[in-house]
């Protein structure tokens, strides 16, 4: 291969940033819950899926009742309707599947999480059917030029939303009373309880906020790819979980960094490693690159990029 085409390189980096923001949005939810409870909420990906599909249903309804409503408004209102659905779901999952197991062996909640995941997938299959749904372009997916590369408005929105949510969460965790209670719970549940923190309430709130984020993430994913499906949460959740661990699970900034890094690795890996290895490792090894970087990072930094075992955990 000859010289690197700069337009293509810029496009690949942009691709990676958008994909990474998608991962980061979902990873933030994982990391929130992990930070407070030390629990991998495997069902998070399914909450993302429920968020996307219920937004889709509400938006169809809105579109029928108020045909004149502009696209972004439809999306905004239907997302606002989907958020409480996911919040309620998150609350219920914690209450039913995790809370009774808080003192149980470490792997028990992992298995209930898998069970909940299977349940949610199949419920979604009953409610929304087996088929793929086309997600209407409420925010334009028409491309525009950006220094020789192309972007779509929806991608700009995704990056902006991811950054805004991360910033909002940071403020919440580090500047508010609720955040302080969360950090205290993360540090030591029983001591925090003795200090007058209502542990159960804090954990519920964490789940509810995490699920609200999942709803937003689901909408963003569906809008970006114009597609929604009952199975979409599984792969996405897995990638986001990888991103969260890469960044240092439990750390908000880490989830963002891990997400973006993972997105860029996948993008550049698929784009260039094939040429670098003379075609031996092509884009079929995209996920291998990502996991390889993850393993290397964890060998040298066993708690992830930004995961320091201090009060920094959200």
């Amino acid at each position: 291969m000859g010289a690197v085409n700069l337009d293509i390189l810029l496009q690949q980096i942009l691709n990676g940033l958008v994909l990474g923001s998608v991962y980061a949005l979902v990873a933030l939810g994982y990391t929130m819950v992990y930070g407070v409870l030390g629990l991998i909420n495997f069902a998070h990906g399914e909450v993302v899926m429920i968020g996307a599909l219920s937004t889709l249903s509400v938006s169809r309804l809105l579109h029928n009742v108020f045909p004149g409503l502009p696209g972004p408004a439809v999306l905004l209102f239907s997302t606002l309707a989907a958020i409480p659905v996911c919040m309620l779901l998150g609350y219920a999952i914690e209450r039913v599947a995790y809370r009774p197991l808080r003192r149980a062996p470490r792997l028990a909640p992992l298995i209930t999480a898998i069970g909940v995941s299977i349940l949610l997938q199949n419920v979604a299959m009953v409610v929304w059917g087996r088929g793929y749904h086309s997600f209407p372009a409420y925010v334009s997916t028409e491309p525009f030029q950006f220094f020789g590369a192309t972007m779509t408005p929806v991608q700009v929105v995704i990056i902006a939303v991811a950054i805004a949510i991360m910033a909002g969460l940071m403020v919440l965790v580090h500047r508010t009373k609720l955040g302080r209670a969360m950090r205290a719970t993360a540090e030591n549940q029983s001591v925090a309880g003795l200090m007058g923190v209502d542990i159960n309430a804090i954990i519920s709130v964490t789940f509810v906020i995490g699920s609200a984020l999942a709803a937003v993430a689901g909408v963003m994913v569906a809008a970006n790819y114009s597609i929604a499906h009952y199975y979409m949460g599984f792969v996405l959740g897995l990638k986001a979980f990888t991103a969260a661990v890469l960044g240092g699970i439990g750390n908000l900034g880490g989830a963002m960094a891990g997400g973006l890094l993972l997105g860029i690795i996948e993008s550049l890996g698929a784009g260039y490693v094939g040429d670098l290895t003379g075609g031996f490792l092509g884009s079929n090894y995209q996920d291998v690159f990502a996991f390889f970087v993850l393993i290397v990072v964890l060998v040298f930094r066993p708690s992830g990029l930004m995961g320091e075992r201090v009060a920094e955990r959200a």
Partner: peptide
């Protein structure tokens, strides 16, 4: 070009850009 994806993927921008 001979590129690859997965049967559960939704993002193809990297391989398409290539």
């Amino acid at each position: 070009a001979r590129e690859f994806t997965r049967n559960d993927a939704t993002d193809f921008r990297a391989i398409l850009t290539k």
